[in-house]
Structures are given as C-alpha cells and as structure tokens.
C-alpha cells in the first residue's frame, strides 16, 4: 500500500510537469527518458565491473599479504554512489 502511494505521488507530479511543459518541448522528455535508461544501463555495467574487480583485488590481498579484507567491503554504499558518478561522467562524455 505504501509503495502504491509513492508511485501515485510520482505519477501525478510527473503528469503535471509533462502537461505543463510546452508542446514543442515534450519530445525532449521522451528523449530524456531514453537517456535515463541508457544511464541506468551504464551504471549497472560500472557497478558490476567495480564489484568483480574489487572481488579479485580482495582475493589477491588475502593470498599474497597477511592482511585480511572482508568481501563485505564491497557492500559499502560509497561503491554505489561512485559507480553512479562514473556512469554519469562517462555516459555524458560518450554522448558528446
């Protein structure tokens, strides 16, 4: 029920903004939605690459040094935020 409430709020504010947007600019909204999906795809690729790379680095550290690094280090929320930043920067640079 809470989830539906949130979805309704977002749908209503999006509809108001969309219909409040000048007709000639509405095509840009559709273009922005496509860019958003591309951004989401880029983000998921960077996040997956960072997790896999991090996994191998941790295994190397564990194998060749006496230092123990927990795999849970990859659960750090910073990895999500920085992957999002990476995706934003590279997605923009590829588009220009």
């Amino acid at each position: 029920m809470d989830n539906i409430f949130v979805l309704v709020i977002v749908a209503v504010t999006s509809a108001i903004t969309y219909f409040g947007t000048q007709r000639k600019n509405r095509a840009k909204v559709r273009e922005a939605i496509r860019a958003f999906f591309e951004y989401a795809g880029t983000f998921s690729l960077f996040f997956a690459a960072n997790v896999v790379f991090g996994f191998f680095i941790i295994l190397l550290i564990r194998t060749f040094t006496p230092v123990f690094v927990a795999l849970y280090a990859l659960e750090n929320v910073l990895l999500l935020i920085l992957s999002a930043a990476q995706a934003f920067v590279f997605h923009r640079s590829w588009k220009r």
């Binding site: 989830n3 496509r34 958003f36 999906f37 591309e38 951004y39 989401a40 795809g41 880029t42 983000f43």
Partner: peptide
Amino acid sequence: MIRGLGILIIIACLIVALT
C-alpha cells in the same frame, strides 16, 4: 544495447521492490 540493459535493470528493480 546499453539502453536495453537499463530498461531491464529498472523493470527488475520495480518487480523486486513492488512484488
């Protein structure tokens, strides 16, 4: 292809979150 992956990820997140 990247857009397709993005659509897939967003749909998967919505399905997981809402069902």
